[in-house]
Design a protein around this nucleic acid. Sequence first.
DNA 1: GTCAATATTTTTGTATACAAAAGACGATCT
DNA 2: AGATCGTCTTTTGTATACAAAAATATTGAC
Lengths: 218, 218
Amino acid sequence: MERKRSDTIAEALEGMILEGTFVDGERLDEVQLAERFSVSRTPLREALQRLALSGLVEQIPRRGVFVRQPGPVELVEMFEVMAELESVCARLAASRITDAALAEMRAVNVRCQRAVEAHDTDGYYYENERFHAILYRHSGNGFLEKECKRLFRRLTPFRRLQLRLRGRLRQSMAEHEAIVAALEAGDALAASDAIRRHVAVQGEKFHHLMSTLKSAAE
Amino acid sequence: MERKRSDTIAEALEGMILEGTFVDGERLDEVQLAERFSVSRTPLREALQRLALSGLVEQIPRRGVFVRQPGPVELVEMFEVMAELESVCARLAASRITDAALAEMRAVNVRCQRAVEAHDTDGYYYENERFHAILYRHSGNGFLEKECKRLFRRLTPFRRLQLRLRGRLRQSMAEHEAIVAALEAGDALAASDAIRRHVAVQGEKFHHLMSTLKSAAE
DNA sequence: GTCAATATTTTTGTATACAAAAGACGATCT
DNA sequence: AGATCGTCTTTTGTATACAAAAATATTGAC
């Protein structure tokens, strides 16, 4: 199933960075990491290059690679782009989505709601991802779908944080319901607006969270 | 100035693929290419990995890398996404763009027009890129700007092809004018619609071109 | 002659070895 | 004492060497 060493390492490192194992700007030592993963520098370097291309680390020639956590500004920007991309998905999907897919979205929402009530955060994350993935798929544009998944994945850790705000989970569920309703009505404008706000608000909430955390630290 | 071997090689290979030096599905031989670039396999493999991540080649584990030219369907999809992204840029820029930037866009358009009249295609490509780059910049969203530039770059060779259609160049210029006019009026909707069509039409023209070429070959 | 199983060759993935550049440290000169 | 130059170490980038997997060729049986 697994492809090669460098793949597993890239995945592991990606997870570690996204989880905040390293502080921003920290240099990643090749030999140290190679030792830690019990591999030579070659596959490790390949993994680092991949991270560099996906923007998780910055590679400065002859200097090394440094973890690069996006700042609050960049994060809001990323959420804004995500919101717009999903908005496009919704607009396209409004006319293209099948009844079967709509039924599945409803089913996902039900499971999502159950997860909320059971305080099963992992379950919630999973169903939430399903919800969005279905939307991407039914935009009918495979390239758009891939780009959305890429960005969605990149934003995962920050979405998680923002969800810990009081009442945010319940609010998020309500937004999901509204999106499905708009799609069922075939109302492209309403659907795209609803999801744009649904995603954009995540960025805003996150920003809010960050600034409160920052001022609390002072 | 240049960073390292693998960078220059990646750039060179990228150019070769985009220019169509290799046919779709062709396997890229590591040792052969390494010899050709007078380097060892190590930097060459790094270059190939980068191409794989940007989607120009597909890397099948233990099998090798194969050039992956997007088919007509995927291309239209990519142009559609580009159109939507630029549309977002225009909508945001409509309220954020400065007078200086608008003046620059006008100036670029003038130079673009001159290039058309002088049949200076390279000049046209350059000014056209400037035009779009200014728009991206004034979306005020740095992340969006980067994503747009990435996709713009990826679509370059196909834009070039489509521009060879009769009258397309002149039409494209007119569209540029309309976009600037809408931005000057601060009309977000008009600007976003205008550029969406401006880009989407490129995909359609390209698609048209491909199908005529295909039927001509039969 | 064809198919299959095995041996051979190629080719990819990984490890190690080497070279060159950057950084650290200290000695020397003003 | 402070700055500058030089060397020494550390670390990245590249080359080569080796291992494992896939592709290909070869041989043998039917």
